[in-house]
């Protein structure tokens, strides 16, 4: 892309992202009001059990006796000043609860994504090279299996095999409890705890990326510039790396951006299975306690993360690939 067009492109994407975030806030607002019963008791997170004085205070704070658009305005103002409400169950602001849990979720989803991308692209490239041979059948079987297996069940089965039967890996939490550790020992301990959850979350996407890489590589391998390279006498290994794989990766990156939301949704299940102390676990705890402000906060934060991630892949893509349509 020409350098002069880049700022305008980024601005348009930024505005679009802001509109999506706004729409998410409105969506949250509507959900609170669509809930059966009193919106105040939803905000309190204690359906039918909160005391009257407290509910009255909430009604005043959120202007619940005023017209809907005034309420929406009050709600928008508070969310946009990063006030996501207060969890009366946990006696802490929702924003703080979510931020505390964010690093663990980022570590888990990041590791799962890196694993899925690396292994998926490798498998897909192998399969594209040996069409109809073993690698090809292997990815087809892996893909069919992991498309059809519930994520949480894969996690439980890994726990059963590697923690319960073989006793190789821990099945619970993010670090060992009650053990004094320093420096690298801590890293090693967390890595051991991370392995199974990251594997669980990554296996499904491994299948997705492998299929996608295989398909795009077969498509690219047929194109003229590859034939030209071959005619020039470029070694086959270099053609694969520099010409085919590099071009085949672009759709995989786009797709990874689109899937970010699913990855975060999946981490709720994986964190529940492995008691991983991230946002997903927070959502599960909030679910058990019917702590609606926290649930709404988790929905808002994960949505914003997806929007930011999409913005990032858009930018990356525009910089890497000059053919990207600027107006898009």
């Amino acid at each position: 892309m020409e350098a002069s067009k880049l700022p305008g492109f980024l601005l348009r994407r930024g505005v679009k992202a802001a509109i999506v975030v706004l729409a998410i806030v409105i969506c949250n607002f509507l959900l609170v009001h669509a809930a059966p019963g009193d919106p105040a008791s939803v905000i309190a997170g204690q359906s039918g059990a909160a005391d009257a004085v407290f509910l009255e205070q909430l009604r005043r704070q959120f202007g619940l006796d005023q017209p809907l658009y005034v309420q929406l305005w009050i709600y928008l103002k508070s969310v946009l000043s990063l006030d996501l409400g207060f969890s009366h169950r946990q006696q802490a602001p929702v924003a703080q609860l979510v931020l505390e849990r964010l690093p663990a979720t980022l570590l888990l989803t990041g590791a799962a994504f890196a694993f899925a991308l690396a292994a998926g692209v490798t498998l897909g490239a192998l399969a594209a090279q040996r069409v109809g041979r073993w690698a090809d059948s292997v990815i087809t079987v892996i893909a069919l299996t992991f498309y059809a297996t519930p994520l949480f069940w894969v996690g439980l089965m890994l726990v059963l095999v590697f923690s319960v039967w073989l006793e190789w890996l821990p099945s619970f939490g993010m670090s060992s409890v009650g053990v004094e550790m320093h420096g690298l020992e801590v890293v090693w301990d967390v890595a051991q705890h991370l392995l199974l959850p990251a594997l669980t979350l990554g296996l499904f996407y491994l299948a997705v990326y492998a299929r996608l890489t295989r398909a795009t590589m077969l498509e690219v391998a047929d194109q003229d510039f590859v034939k030209t390279a071959r005619a020039k006498g470029v070694p086959e290994g270099r053609i694969l790396r520099a010409h085919v794989l590099r071009n085949a990766l672009l759709p995989v990156i786009t797709f990874a951006g689109i899937q970010a939301g699913q990855l975060l949704g999946g981490s709720i299940l994986v964190e529940t299975v492995f008691a991983w102390p991230g946002i997903g676990r927070l959502a599960f705890e909030a679910l058990l306690a019917r702590d609606y402000p926290v649930l709404l906060g988790v929905f808002f934060c994960t949505s914003v993360m997806v929007v930011l991630f999409n913005l990032l892949t858009d930018m990356l893509y525009a910089i890497i690939d000059p053919r990207v349509e600027v107006a898009g």
């Binding site: 999506v20 669509a34 809930a35 939301g261 975060l264 949704g265 999946g266 929905f299």
Partner: peptide, 20 residues
């Protein structure tokens, strides 16, 4: 597009939780 951007599973959880 909006519905495809937001994390659908989180939305599904929220919907079921709120509507009991």
């Amino acid at each position: 597009e909006f519905f495809q951007t937001i994390p659908s599973f989180v939305l599904a959880i929220l919907l079921v939780a709120i509507f009991t």
